[in-house]
């Protein structure tokens, strides 16, 4: 491998830009694995509890707004599409398209958070926030509260990841606007994209698990 230290983005401890890029991508995947396990703990508990308290969890699930949940799913899938297109534009060196798709992704991400906020506000008004104020007219109200504990913990953690994602998008927009990304140096866009898609996948599971699966029984 030639020693090409003229490359401005090459850090000193790497031999070549290619090695640096591969290392970064692998690092991002390793990080995403930790994220899988992080959310995995919550999914494990949820699975255990749903098998024990299926009726109460179904009741909790029916309190959720299916329409808003479904709309949010569509919004997030749309944002994943625009993100993928942003990466593609970066690979091809199309600056305007990159900025456009990044802006769209940011917008859709914010829309998701906005809709989530409306849902939270409804739940708050309906006194479905776990804690002393929680009220639900049910013989198994404690177990319904458990459902909402999971609902808020899981969607809250997911929303937190969305906020970080929107922050990343803003950062990319700034640097993209300054023209920092080129067909040979686009991996910050690519890595942010991996993160964004991962957060999308978490929602792809959260939506059926919380809104759909338990509706019957």
């Amino acid at each position: 491998m030639p020693e090409t230290h003229s490359e401005p983005h090459l850090q000193h401890h790497f031999v070549a830009l290619e090695q640096q890029q591969e290392a970064s991508t692998l690092g991002m995947w390793a990080f995403l694995i930790t994220e899988i396990m992080f959310f995995g703990g919550l999914f494990t508990l949820f699975t255990a509890y749903v098998s024990a308290y299926s009726e109460a969890f179904a009741e909790g699930s029916r309190h959720l707004d299916l329409v808003l949940g479904a709309v949010n799913t569509v919004v997030l899938i749309g944002s994943s599409f625009t993100m993928a297109m942003a990466v593609r534009s970066a690979q091809l060196g199309k600056r305007k398209a990159l900025l456009g798709f990044l802006a769209l992704t940011t917008l859709l991400g914010c829309a998701f958070l906005g809709i989530k906020g409306i849902e939270y506000a409804h739940k708050f008004k309906q006194r479905l926030l776990p804690g002393p104020a929680f009220r639900v007219d049910s013989p198994a109200s404690q177990h319904v509260q458990l459902f909402f504990s999971f609902y808020f913990a899981m969607t809250g953690l997911h929303a937190l990841h969305m906020v970080v994602g929107v922050g990343l998008m803003t950062w990319l927009l700034f640097h993209g606007w300054r023209g920092r990304f080129t067909p040979t140096y686009f991996w910050p866009v690519e890595l942010s994209g991996l993160y964004w898609h991962f957060v999308d996948i978490v929602w792809i599971f959260l939506f059926p698990v919380l809104y759909l699966v338990a509706r019957h029984s």
Partner: peptide, 25 residues
């Protein structure tokens, strides 16, 4: 470290939540 640590992290987070909010996890 990569596969195990996140699970204990989320678990301790839940213990903290339960201590703070009494949500009964």
């Amino acid at each position: 470290m990569i596969l195990g640590t996140p699970v204990v992290a989320i678990t301790l987070l839940m213990v903290g939540l339960e201590r703070g909010l009494g949500i009964g996890l």
